[in-house]
Amino acid sequence: MEMQESMMGRGRDAIEMIVDAGSFAEGTVGTEAFADPEFGPGAVVGTATVQGTLCTIIASDGGAMNEKFPVVYAGIIGLEEGYKMAEAVYASIAADAEKPLAEKRPLVLIVDTPGNGPGKVEEIFGMNKSTAAYQLALAEARLKGHPIIAMVIGRAISGAFLCHGLQADAILSLDAQFGTMIHVMPLTSVSRIIRKDLETLEDLSKASAVFAAGPRFFHSLGGVEALVETVEGMRPAIAARIAEVRTAKAEGRQDDLGPWGRGKLGEARGGRTERPRVIALMNREFAEVAGRYAPAR
């Protein structure tokens, strides 16, 4: 595997690589204008075309710092950033509210974020609401028919990946040669916290993808739909996914997409086989007693 130049911290470059040349209008989504440059600078939102299709773009800016909330730097999602991203999603839904399914604009999430803002002010005011607000907005847009594609270019870490990425219909990732990081915690930290030596964990991770770090492990768990080999490959890969997702939605196959669809993919790829077993068991057990919980008439 020949290492390639990392895209880490380069969310803005990635936008230029992915969208049609000169098409990105930063700060505008539908009728919503994000005019204040000091509002949530760690999140970049706007509208562009990707192979001619009008899309909402949401990315993290690894170079930005939020003066008001100093925990925000290097692509961290803070209080303002989470809500700004949520607003970009709601603006996309509103802009296409009257349009038929086939014309709901896609959302492209460019993922390179190391975390959610940790801090006292953040906890006092409830950072958990900010990231949850964005996730709910994405889930709503997805269920209303907007195709959502996440493109992991650098870091997709734990709660920040939950927030920005894991609610997408489909997730693409630059492959491991770009140094792409997808994990909850690096194995060295896992080793310290769960008190297992690193060598044992490294050995075990060859057989089990559930705690190992990296895009290929997530791929085998169904957490990433496909790996992309080159930066030039990102735009066509995203455009092709948008088309596939649209078709699936038109055919009513929403359950093949998003988090639930990735659960099915995890089973098919052999990385998550316990999940379907316990779900089937619960369904059988509930079917036996359901009558007791229905109105008696």
Binding site: V184, V210, R272
Partner: peptide, 9 residues
């Protein structure tokens, strides 16, 4: 953390 990726998903 013992099965972090599956837990995250």
């Amino acid at each position: 953390l013992h099965e972090a990726n599956a837990g995250l998903l």
